[in-house]
Computed example of a mutant assay.
Amino acid sequence: MGWTTAHVPDQSGRTALVTGASAGIGFETARVLAARGAHVVLACRDTGRGRAAAERIDGSTEVVPLDLASLASVRRAAGLVRERYRRLDLLVNNAGVMFPSYRRTEDGFEAHLGVNHLGHFALTGLLLDLMTSVPGSRVVTVASLAHRVGFGRLDEVAARSSTGRRSMTAYGRSKLANLLFARELQHRLAVAGAATVSVAAHPGLSPTALWHGDPPALARPVAAAGMRWLAQPVEAAALPSLRAAVDPAVHGGAYLGPSERFGGRGAPEATRSSRAARSGAERRRLWTLSEELTGVRYVCEPAVLEAPASAAETSSAPAVVVCPVTGARA
């Protein structure tokens, strides 16, 4: 039998933040974490739906307003979390849009890239110092099989494009950005000697609210056929995110997804991404661009950590943790 919610260890004493937790995969992720004892912050664009979701969860929860299409909202949400919590054990970057009704975000970014990547890049940077000294802490970024069709250069032109609202390529490009971000974050955390790790996951195919947008006409029959043959219930689609968040055997930099039917469904296992998602040069280039576009910069500062576990880990240089420094763009 594959990995299921029965494998989720006790989460008592831990605090988790899940974006887009009012429905779908985000809700299931939050529900299971709370049921295992975690205090879960539901970060939702629609706080009314967020509160309704929290009432359906058996456990400790709180709702924080977060609109990833607005960097001002991202900063306000991060500020609220920082006021209320001294530490964060889990950050699950789950929320996303596909074929949205609007073309650009409040800050003028192409909608898919602005919400799915840039909003989460900023949020993670603004909260990361609550995590880096917390043993077992993790950042989980939810990607997609669609990252394989994310053709085209990830640059400022694409980020500010007014086209792509109904483009699977634009959606795929944002999901490719998710994977590049997750891997570059892991690299930087590892170099810094932080306690936090970065992991990515994808849910396969599931009939979530993402499909309620306005897809291109040619994509509709393909999507319908795929849903009939490959899709799995939302409860199963949340398992990769949950395993990425809590399984102690999952290492930093891992990418998890369903193991059957071309990754569309099945138990969550380690999976392989496209070659483009593994490019170190593209990771670094996207990181620099994301800092410039969001005004959120991740900076390493020296800090003394606990003594190394073995002589092999000893170094004359001090250990460091990642401490994000932020500033609004002019």
Score class of each variant (00 low, 15 high):
15 T>I: 13
61 T>M: 04
36 R>S: 07
138 R>P: 00
65 P>F: 08
314 T>M: 15
316 S>V: 15
328 A>K: 15
207 P>T: 07
316 S>Y: 14
275 R>T: 13
164 G>C: 03
181 F>E: 06
34 A>P: 04
158 A>L: 11
122 A>P: 01
323 C>F: 15
71 L>M: 07
18 V>I: 11
118 L>H: 06
81 V>H: 00
210 L>N: 09
52 A>Y: 11
210 L>E: 04
73 S>K: 07
225 A>M: 12
1 M>C: 14
234 V>Y: 03
8 V>H: 01
203 P>E: 05
294 T>P: 10
90 L>M: 10
242 L>H: 04
213 G>K: 01
180 L>Y: 02
221 P>C: 07
80 L>V: 12
172 G>N: 04
265 R>L: 09
285 R>H: 10
161 S>D: 05
200 A>Q: 03
265 R>P: 02
114 G>Q: 02
185 L>E: 00
267 A>E: 12
32 V>A: 03
283 R>E: 08
222 V>H: 07
246 V>Y: 02
15 T>Y: 05
59 G>W: 03
106 E>S: 12
66 L>F: 02
74 V>E: 00
211 W>D: 12
166 R>K: 14
272 R>N: 14
300 C>Q: 15
290 S>N: 09
316 S>D: 15
167 S>Y: 05
106 E>M: 13
289 L>F: 10
114 G>K: 01
274 S>H: 06
38 A>V: 05
129 D>C: 10
64 V>M: 06
227 M>E: 12
63 V>L: 05
78 A>V: 09
324 P>M: 11
54 A>Q: 00
287 W>H: 04
177 A>Y: 04
33 L>M: 07
189 L>A: 03
81 V>F: 06
24 G>D: 04
314 T>N: 15
141 T>E: 01
43 A>F: 02
264 G>F: 03
176 L>I: 09
325 V>D: 12
76 R>I: 13
171 Y>C: 06
91 L>P: 01
29 T>M: 06
182 A>V: 01
165 R>P: 10
25 I>F: 02
89 D>N: 08
222 V>P: 06
88 L>K: 00
301 E>Y: 12
114 G>N: 07
218 L>W: 13
16 A>D: 02
269 E>Y: 11
262 F>Q: 13
184 E>K: 02
293 L>E: 06
274 S>Y: 05
278 R>L: 12
139 V>C: 00
295 G>M: 08
204 G>C: 07
164 G>F: 01
260 E>P: 12
148 R>Y: 11
278 R>D: 12
200 A>H: 01
135 P>R: 08
297 R>F: 14
173 R>Q: 10
72 A>T: 13
61 T>H: 06
41 V>Q: 03
314 T>Q: 15
211 W>L: 13
264 G>Y: 03
38 A>S: 08
253 G>P: 03
221 P>V: 01
113 L>D: 00
180 L>A: 02
53 A>Q: 10
88 L>H: 01
152 G>C: 07
65 P>A: 10
248 P>I: 05
247 D>M: 01
79 G>S: 12
37 G>Q: 06
330 A>L: 14
316 S>Q: 14
94 N>V: 04
156 E>G: 08
273 S>C: 12
295 G>H: 08
82 R>W: 05
145 L>F: 09
240 P>D: 04
86 R>S: 15
253 G>H: 02
257 G>Y: 05
33 L>G: 02
